[in-house]
Design a protein around this nucleic acid. Structure first.
Lengths: 208, 208
DNA sequence: GCCAAATGTGAGTATCTTGTTTATATTCTC
DNA sequence: GAGAATATAAACAAGATACTCACATTTGGC
C-alpha cells in the first residue's frame, strides 16, 4: 500500500537507432511472446525472456522501462496481427463459404506461431493503466469486423452484436482448444470449424 | 533438476472426523476455488486461500499435504460437477432443441459460481503426476458424452469425434468469454448459444 | 584510424513471496 | 475431566525476480 500515483510509464526508454539494436528489440519481443505462450504469465520473468532472446538482461532494460512495457509491446504486435487477419477476411463481399474458409485459415495461421499466446494475453496478463485502453480498443475493433461479416451473411438482422460475440468466441474457443492439444493443423478440424461458422450464419436450420 | 522420483503425495494427510473439520475442509476447497477463479494460478498461494477461507494456514496443512493436493481436490470437485451436467443433458433421448437448451442452462449454471475456474483449471494449473491422469480421464468422459449427443442428432455419421470436439470447445469458448465480461446470465446469449448448437448439429445448411 | 555515441554485458542487490513447520491453545467426545 | 481431535499464527528457509550499475565492445561519421 505505498503511494501509487500514476506512473507515466513510457513505451520505450530509448529508441533503437542502429540496425543492431532494432534486431535486439525484435528478438526480445519475439522471445517474450514465446515465453508467454509456453509458460504463461506466472512464469514470465524478464530474466527468462532475456535468456530466451539470447540477450543480456541489461539490454532488455535499456529499451523497456519495466516488465509491463514489454508485455504491452508483445500485446500490441499480436493484436495488430490478428486484427489484420479478420479485417482481410471480412473486407470485400464474397460468398459465405469463402469468408469462412479464409477466416479459419487466417486465424489458425495467426495462432500457429505461439499457440496459446492469445489466450494468455486475454486472460492472465494484467491490465494496468494504458493497456486497458488498448485492450478495449482491440476488442471493439475485433467485434466490429465480426459484426460486419454477420450483417452481411445473416438473414435476420436482429442482435447482430450478440451474434458476433457468440461467433467470435466460439471460433476462439475451438482454436484455443486445438492449440492446447497441438491439433491446429488437422485439416478435419479446419473443415468442421468452417462448417460451424456457415451453419450458424446461414442458420435457417431451426426456428426459435 | 533434482532427483524427481515419483512422490507418493497422498490425497489427504488426515481425514476429518468431526463435523467441525469437515466444514473446515469444505471451506478451504471452496475458498481455493474462489481464489483460483478470481486471481488465477499465478496468485494462488496457500496463505491466501487460508485467509479467504477464514481459517489459519496451519489448518490447511493439517488436511492437505501440499499445494498440489489442494488443487487436485478443487479440480476433482469441479470436474465431477461439470460431468454430471452434461451427462444429464445427454442422458435420455429428447428433441435436439431441448438437449441444447438443457446443456446451455446447465453449463452456464456450472460456471456461474466461479466463472473462470474451468479455464484456469484447464490452462494454467500444472499437471504433475496423478492429476494428469485425472485430467485425461475427465477429458475422455467429457468428450464421450458430447460424442453420444452428436451421434444422436447428427445425420452424417462421419467424424463424430472431431465434431464433438469442435462443438464442446465452441460451447466452452462462448461461455468462457461471457464469463470474462460478466454476461453469463444474459438471456440473449443463452438463446444464441442454443441456436449455434442446433444449427451446427442439424447442419444440413451448406454442403462441403 | 579515431573518437564519441550507441549498444551490450552480467554480476549484484534489495525486496518480496511463499510453502511449510511447529509449538501452543482451544474444543470436542466419552 | 482426560485424551484425542482440531485450530492457531508466528516464524523460517529457500527461492524468485525486477531492476541497476559500472564497465566492455561495437558502430558510424570524419
Amino acid at each position: 500500500m505505498s503511494t501509487r500515483i500514476a506512473k507515466p510509464a513510457p513505451r520505450m526508454r530509448k529508441a533503437p537507432r542502429q540496425a543492431r539494436s532494432v534486431a535486439t528489440v525484435e528478438a526480445i519481443i519475439e522471445a517474450g511472446a514465446r515465453v508467454l505462450s509456453e509458460i504463461g504469465w506466472a512464469g514470465f520473468s524478464t530474466n527468462k525472456v532475456a535468456e530466451a532472446a539470447g540477450v543480456s538482461i541489461g539490454s532488455l532494460y535499456q529499451y523497456f522501462p519495466d516488465k509491463l512495457a514489454l508485455v504491452d509491446a508483445i500485446r500490441r504486435r499480436h493484436f495488430d496481427h490478428v486484427l489484420s487477419v479478420i479485417r482481410e477476411a471480412a473486407a470485400e463481399e464474397k460468398p459465405l463459404r469463402q469468408f469462412a474458409r479464409e477466416l479459419v485459415r487466417g486465424m489458425i495461421a495467426a495462432h500457429s506461431i505461439h499457440p496459446t499466446l492469445h489466450q494468455v494475453l486475454l486472460d492472465e496478463t494484467p491490465g494496468d493503466r494504458g493497456s486497458r485502453a488498448a485492450h478495449a480498443s482491440f476488442q471493439a475493433r475485433y467485434l466490429e469486423h465480426y459484426a460486419a461479416a454477420v450483417a452481411q451473411y445473416r438473414r435476420r438482422l436482429k442482435n447482430t452484436e450478440t451474434v458476433a460475440r457468440v461467433l467470435s468466441s466460439a471460433v476462439e474457443g475451438v482454436i484455443h482448444n486445438a492449440a492446447r492439444r497441438n491439433m491446429l493443423d488437422a485439416p478435419e478440424l479446419q473443415k468442421q470449424l468452417g462448417e460451424l461458422i456457415c451453419a450458424y450464419l446461414s442458420g435457417q436450420g431451426v426456428r426459435a
